[in-house]
């Protein structure tokens, strides 16, 4: 099947509920930093925006707007110790197997097999809430995350939106 046209669907759905039409960021180009090491030497971190939190942490607000919360996830967190709260998508598969959306077991296996250098000491979950405050993301929250990634000597960052 053809990819779903989310932009049109979101304008129609949220417009009908009285929310302002979302003015998507549009770029013709992108920044680019080459990967400087083979994967077998790379420390890799990941981020999910799927409303995923450890069971001992508060749940995300499933209907959040402008929620810039960002949790750290320990590299050895068991994949069955998470909860998902997000009304935006069907997470029934991910409820049973977190790896559908946040493949921490697969990444650890690749580190164990030597395919990658290491899983970073911290993985990340956040930016889930229909964020309209784009400048706060671009100028504050994402650069702050980048500083933490550098503290962890991350060579490659995988972002998984939901």
């Amino acid at each position: 099947m053809q990819p779903i046209r989310y932009v049109d669907a979101l304008i129609a759905k949220y417009g009908a509920m009285g929310f302002p039409a979302y003015d998507w960021s549009r770029y013709d180009d992108a920044p680019f930093t080459p990967l400087r090491k083979p994967l077998a030497q790379c420390t890799i971190s990941m981020l999910t925006s799927g409303g995923v939190s450890r069971c001992a942490m508060p749940p995300f607000d499933p209907e959040a707007r402008n929620d810039l919360r960002l949790d750290t996830v320990e590299a050895d967190a068991p994949s069955d110790d998470f909860q998902i709260h997000d009304s935006y998508y069907d997470h029934s598969d991910a409820d049973h197997d977190l790896n559908c959306i946040f493949p921490i077991d697969r990444l650890r296996e690749m580190a164990g097999d030597g395919e990658i250098g290491a899983v970073a000491p911290r993985l990340w979950s956040g930016f889930m809430g229909r964020i309209y405050k784009r400048q706060a993301v671009l100028q504050e929250k994402a650069p702050a995350l980048a500083r933490e990634l550098k503290r962890d000597r991350v060579d490659l960052f995988v972002a998984i939106p939901a």
Binding site: P3, I4, R5, Y6, V7, D8, S25, Y27, A30, P31, F32, T33, P34, L35, L47, S49, F127, R134, V137, L138, K141, A142, P143, L145, A146, R147, L149, K150, V154, D155, L156, F157, V158, A159, I160, P161, A162
Partner: peptide, 23 residues
């Protein structure tokens, strides 16, 4: 998340975004 990737990349760390929304 695309914006997060852009900012992290600008800070000097390569990124890949695993998208299910092509448009």
């Amino acid at each position: 998340m695309g914006l997060v990737c852009r900012a992290v990349e600008e800070a000097g760390i390569p990124t890949v975004c695993v998208s299910t929304g092509r448009d």
